[in-house]
Structures are given as structure tokens and as C-alpha cells.
Nucleic acid binder design. Structure first.
Lengths: 256, 256
DNA sequence: CGACTATTTGATAGGACTCAACCTCCGTGG
DNA sequence: CCACGGAGGTTGAGTCCTATCAAATAGTCG
């Protein structure tokens, strides 16, 4: 049907991410790959999980970007999480509940799935795998809490700066950064829906960050021009991402 | 040391809450109670879990109110969750990570604990118990997401109204409502720290809700004067709390 | 090139914050 | 018994941040 080689390539972000949470043996990695159903490619703006429905499988973003969001009766919507390659769409499969949010792609994406029963077997036989997924869930929750802090306590500039720092750390664990920057296929409206800002104000906030020489934009590429100062204005502390490395901001400081 | 009778009484909210998530046999309930270490009483404003530390046990609020919060370098703090009787303080014990938030009591409280190893045994032997805790964790997460929506998309009045609706549903599952109201031992400053509002504005928002005859306050007792209209202005939908009952707002409508 | 989507700019209004003062309630202690 | 102090609640005035509305300017893709 398909070579295991090509599947390796597609599933790399998942494995990389899980390995950042727990050490996995070759056998464990292989088992995960075997449990993974053939990925499907979906285009941007596709709903891959629907609010109110249950999942019989665990859904994983293998490439591309997606978001969890919830629409309100007044027409507004709030994005409650961004999903990057390696991320699990919803941990609700564990409790068998309906999703309380929808998950939608924001770019072309490869979507992988692991059937629930396969996952249960996997988690029972390989504690390290279970641990890795549990940690992923814990980080997922911590991110949500940190967003809550952003919306509750940070100004527009701080929120935006914080988001850029967060993306930097998250994308760097799956090797999706280039130097001190990364490709971010989000529209300003999509950022606004996550940061609780109007599109207009997102635009002005971005300008302010550029004026302050904290970031620069070339198309979809975001370059963090001064990570230290960016993290400082955002009150960003990577600890909540499960990042052990205190020197995160120095990693790419020399590259420009 | 102590009679099992008195322990029953203290642990009632926990059992009641878990039973709202899954059906538990008498044996299962008994096992939970046996696993529960003798509760300790703490006074208000006591830190019962500390940011950056790990837990070796699962901590449960048996009576009183508490909150998860995180302080920022600039002095502000954000409350990321309110904990009411029956609530588990932190689900991070599952992954063995350090807490990313602190948990502090807001009133005198009874705190129960279950040692991690006891819990693991319990969850392995009694799937219903595991399921109940998993659902509790899922609801906990859903609440956080709903708060995110509040901070991102709702006005001060809507946030406040939403919070009052949420408390009503949460407290009613542990039988802590009286008619269409409940005791809420929070200061306005504490509400502000959760809703992302200044204390002054909390005060004015409360006045507006009272002027609109949506709620009334007698000391610490909050009376929901018009639940339907309150839920309407808040865009409140109890589904995310795992509440199956669509008629939640009618339950106490006749009582005044 | 045209249709669409995304970004940018300008002007105005309003929600929420800050600062500052005052009031009310309670528990303490002289 | 009353004076005192502190915590919490209330009010007022002024400011700032962010939303809204509207329109113009890029980009992009068939």
C-alpha cells in the first residue's frame, strides 16, 4: 500500500515531539508508526473535528497548521489553541466525551489518526508512550492557561510578543524554525481571533513590534530580531511548555 | 483514629461529583473513601499547591473555595480556575510534572488527598473510577477554554454573568445551591483577577447586573433573579460542564 | 485582467483602567 | 464601651487602549 519509509517522513514531527517528552526506544517508535493510519491530506479551512461529536480515534497534525475554535451565538469566534505539526487535536478521546470545540486547518495539512483501541493497547504495553502522550496533554493544558493569562493580563503588544515566543519554542522542538524565525501561515484575522483583538488592531500591533525592531516579517516568515527583548516585553517564560532548556533564547541568537 | 461516618460526611462532595460523571457502585465509593487520607482543615489564603513543585498525591477540595493562579513579574496575577468542593486541585499528578500554577484557598477549606500510588491501583482495578476522574479532568479543561472565550470575546457584564451561571451549575451538582442562588465567598478583587477586570470595574459591573435585575446580593449570597435572561446575556451554554440536562435553568425558576 | 482575499490607514467612539478619595463593616484592644 | 485599624466596597474624574466603521491599497490566483 505504502512504504514505511514515506510514512516515517510524514510522521516525523509526531515522533520528534513525543521524544521531547519521554525517551522512546526504536521498538516503541515503530509501534507508534504501525498504529498510525495512512495520513490524509486536507486543504486549508477544513473542519477535521466537529464540536458536539465524539471521536473514535486520536487525530494528529503531521504537517501544516490548525486551530481549535468555538463560535459564539453573536457571530464572534475565539481560537482556543493553535495546533502545529506533531500536536494532538483533542485529548477528549481519552474520556470519550464529545468535543467542545471544532478543529479547523489553517493551511494544507497532513492528518494522521490512531484508532482508539490501538492506542489503548499501545499505552498499556509501552509505559513510555503513555507517559509521552500524558505530558503532551499536560503541555497542551498549560498553553491554554498561559493564553488565559495573556487575555487577562497582557496588552495587545505583550500578547502578540508572547505568541511569537510560544510559536518559536513549539516549532523549534519539531525542527520547524529557520534561524531565529519560522513560517507562520496565519492571517491577521486568525491571530486576532486567538488573541482577542480586532483585525485592525492586530495590524497596528504588528507594526509596533516591527517599529520596535522586535520582529520583522517577510511574507509568511516571522523573524525574531531580538528574542531576549521580545520575551521580556511578553513576560515569556518557556517553562510551561515543558522546556527544560533555560538557554532557549540564546540558541539562535548568533544566527543573524 | 476517626470513624468512617465522619469521613463520609466530609468527602460527600467528591463522591457526588464523581457520580455525576460515572455510575459508581458502593464498593467503588468505599474504595475511594479508603484511599482518601484524613482531610486537613486550612484557613483562607493558604497556598496548598506551589508553582514549580511536583505532587506525590492528588489533592481535593472537600469544602470551601480555592483558586489556581499565576503571578506575573509585573505584579499582576491571573486566576485560571476556581475550585469548589469536589474539585481536584491539579491533574498534573498524572504526568508527574511540576505545577505551572499555585493553588490557594479563598476561604476556610477541608483538603483531602489520595496518594498517587493508591490512585493508580484504584484506577486500574475500577475502570469506572478512572472514567469518572478522566471526565472530571475533561470538564476542568473545558472550563478553562470557556474562560478563554470569556476573556477574548465577552464584555465585562457578559463575563460576570457567565461566571455566575457557571458557578450555579457547578455548585448545584454538589448540592451547594439554595434555591436559585448560592454562597460565594469571593472578594471583588478576586473576581477581577479571574475575569481580567480591575476591582473598580468589577464593582460597577455588579451594580449593572443588579440594576438589570439579573442578580441580587445579600452579603455573600448571590441570588440569580432571572436565570434565563442571565444565561442569555452571558451566552451561557452548560454543555461544556458535562451537564446533560437541558432544563438546567428551569430547575429553580419556580422557587421565587 | 478581474475577483477575491488580505493588509493598511484614518477617524471616532466607548469600554475598561488608573488614581484617589471616601464609606462601611468588623474585630481588636484599651 | 468606644476608639482604632484594616479589609472590602463604593464613587468620581480623567486617560488610555482597543473596537468599530469606512475606505483605500496591496497581493494572489485562475
Amino acid at each position: 500500500m505504502r512504504t514505511s519509509g514515506s510514512q516515517w517522513a510524514e510522521a516525523a514531527p509526531l515522533i520528534t515531539k513525543l521524544e521531547s517528552h519521554a525517551t522512546l526506544s526504536n521498538e516503541e517508535k515503530l509501534r507508534i508508526l504501525q498504529a498510525l493510519a495512512p495520513p490524509r491530506v486536507v486543504s486549508a479551512h477544513t473542519e477535521i473535528l466537529t464540536q458536539g461529536k465524539k471521536s473514535t480515534a486520536l487525530t494528529i497534525i503531521l504537517s501544516g497548521f490548525a486551530c481549535r475554535s468555538k463560535a459564539l451565538p453573536d457571530g464572534h469566534r475565539q481560537i482556543t489553541a493553535y495546533l502545529v505539526p506533531g500536536d494532538i487535536c483533542d485529548f477528549r478521546f481519552l474520556s470519550g466525551d464529545e468535543h467542545d470545540c471544532s478543529v479547523t486547518t489553517m493551511s494544507t495539512a497532513d492528518i494522521g489518526t490512531i484508532a482508539l483501541e490501538d492506542f489503548v493497547v499501545l499505552a498499556e504495553h509501552y509505559p513510555a508512550i503513555a507517559r509521552a502522550f500524558l505530558k503532551a496533554a499536560a503541555v497542551d493544558e498549560a498553553i491554554t492557561r498561559e493564553w488565559l493569562i495573556s487575555l487577562g493580563q497582557r496588552t495587545a503588544v505583550q500578547r502578540m510578543a508572547h505568541l511569537f515566543c510560544e510559536f518559536f519554542v513549539r516549532l523549534s522542538t519539531v525542527h520547524l524554525t529557520r534561524g531565529a524565525g519560522y513560517d507562520l501561515p496565519l492571517t491577521q484575522a486568525e491571530m486576532g481571533a486567538a488573541l482577542g483583538l480586532s483585525t485592525v488592531h492586530v495590524n497596528r500591533t504588528l507594526q509596533e513590534l516591527r517599529r520596535g525592531k522586535l520582529i520583522s516579517l517577510k511574507g509568511k516568515f516571522v523573524a525574531l530580531e531580538d528574542i531576549t527583548r521580545l520575551a521580556d516585553t511578553a513576560m515569556f517564560d518557556p517553562l510551561y511548555l515543558g522546556n527544560e532548556n533555560k538557554d532557549w533564547s540564546r540558541q539562535h541568537q548568533s544566527l543573524h
